[in-house]
Amino acid sequence: MIRVLLADDQTLVRAAFAMLVESASDMEVVAQAGTGLEAVGLARTHRPDIVVMDIRMPELDGIEATRLIAADGELAGVKVLVLTTYDTDEHVAEALRAGASGFLVKDTRPAELLAAIRTVSAGDALLSPGPTARLISRVLRGPELPFRGAPGGPDCLSDRERQVLGLVARGLNNTEIAETLGLSPLTAKTHVSRIMGKLGARDRAQLVIAAYESGLAVPAGGAADGS
C-alpha cells in the first residue's frame, strides 16, 4: 500500500482528495493536515510514502514544509508531490529547491493524480513535460541550485549512463528508456539506480536537474553553457 498524507488548508478539497485516494486499491490516507506546520508534524509521526502538499497554507507554506521534510534525515523515504492552483515558474522552481519530487496543478484529472502518486512513490520524477526545460533553466540561473550532485558530476558516468541520464531529463520512465535504447526494463532500471548512486541523487527529480546543470539536457530553444 502507498501511504499518503494530504496537506491542504481547504477542508472540502482534502475530503475530495481523500475519497479519491481511498478509492484506489493500492493506496491509503494515513493523515490529513490543514497547515504546513501540521503537515511536517504528521509526516514525522506517520512516516508516509507520499505527502500531497498544497503550496499556500497558513502557519507554514507548502514550500517551507517541503524543505523541512526533505532536510529531515529521519524522513529520508518520504517524498513530496506538490499540488497547487498556481502553475508558475516561481512555484515550480521553489518546489524543486525545497526538495519536491513532483509538481501538479489542482485541475489535473483524478486518474492523473493517482498516477502521479504512483509515479513519485516508485522513485520517478514528475515534472510537467511542457514547462520542464524552461523551469530547470530558470532554476539554474538562480542564486541557489536545488541539487549540486557529486563533485565529479556526469563525468563519472559511462557513455551509456550519460545517454540514460539525458532520457531521464526528457521525462522518460524506465520502460520508455529501455525501448529507446534497445535494453530490457530491468537493465534500464539498473542504469538509473547506478546513476543516482554515482551522483548522490535522492530521486529522479534531482537527476533531471543534474542533466540540465551539466549540459546533457538543453532547454528548448537554447544551448548548453559554453557551447
Rank of each mutant, 00 (worst) to 15 (best):
Met1Val: 10
Gln10Lys: 11
Thr11Ile: 15
Leu12Phe: 15
Asp26Lys: 14
Glu28Asp: 06
Val29Thr: 07
Val30Ser: 10
Ala31His: 07
Ala31Val: 06
Gly36Met: 10
Val40Met: 01
Gly41Asp: 07
Ile50Glu: 08
Glu64Tyr: 00
Arg67Thr: 03
Leu68His: 06
Ala71Glu: 12
Asp72Trp: 06
Ala76Leu: 11
Val78Ser: 06
Lys79Gln: 09
Leu81His: 04
Val82Asn: 11
Thr85Lys: 11
Asp87Gln: 05
His91Val: 02
Val92His: 10
Ala93Tyr: 02
Ala93Cys: 09
Glu94Ala: 15
Leu96Gln: 08
Ala98Ser: 11
Phe103Pro: 08
Phe103Arg: 07
Asp107Lys: 00
Leu113Thr: 02
Arg118Ile: 03
Ser121Gly: 05
Ser121His: 11
Ser121Gln: 09
Ala122Val: 02
Ala122Gly: 13
Ser128Asp: 14
Leu135Asn: 10
Arg138Glu: 11
Arg138Tyr: 10
Arg141Cys: 05
Leu145Gly: 09
Pro146Ile: 03
Phe147Trp: 06
Gly149Lys: 01
Ala150Pro: 03
Ala150Phe: 06
Pro154Asp: 08
Leu157Pro: 00
Arg162Tyr: 09
Val164Trp: 00
Val164Cys: 00
Arg170Tyr: 08
Glu176Met: 05
Ile177Val: 12
Leu183Phe: 04
Leu186Met: 12
Leu186Val: 15
Thr190Arg: 15
Thr190Asp: 14
Ser193Ile: 15
Arg194Asn: 09
Arg194Leu: 11
Ile195Asn: 09
Lys198Leu: 14
Leu199Asp: 02
Leu199His: 00
Ala201His: 05
Ala205Val: 04
Ile209Gly: 01
Gly215Asp: 04
Gly215Ser: 04
Val218His: 05
Pro219Cys: 00
Pro219Trp: 02
Ala220Pro: 06
Ser227Tyr: 04
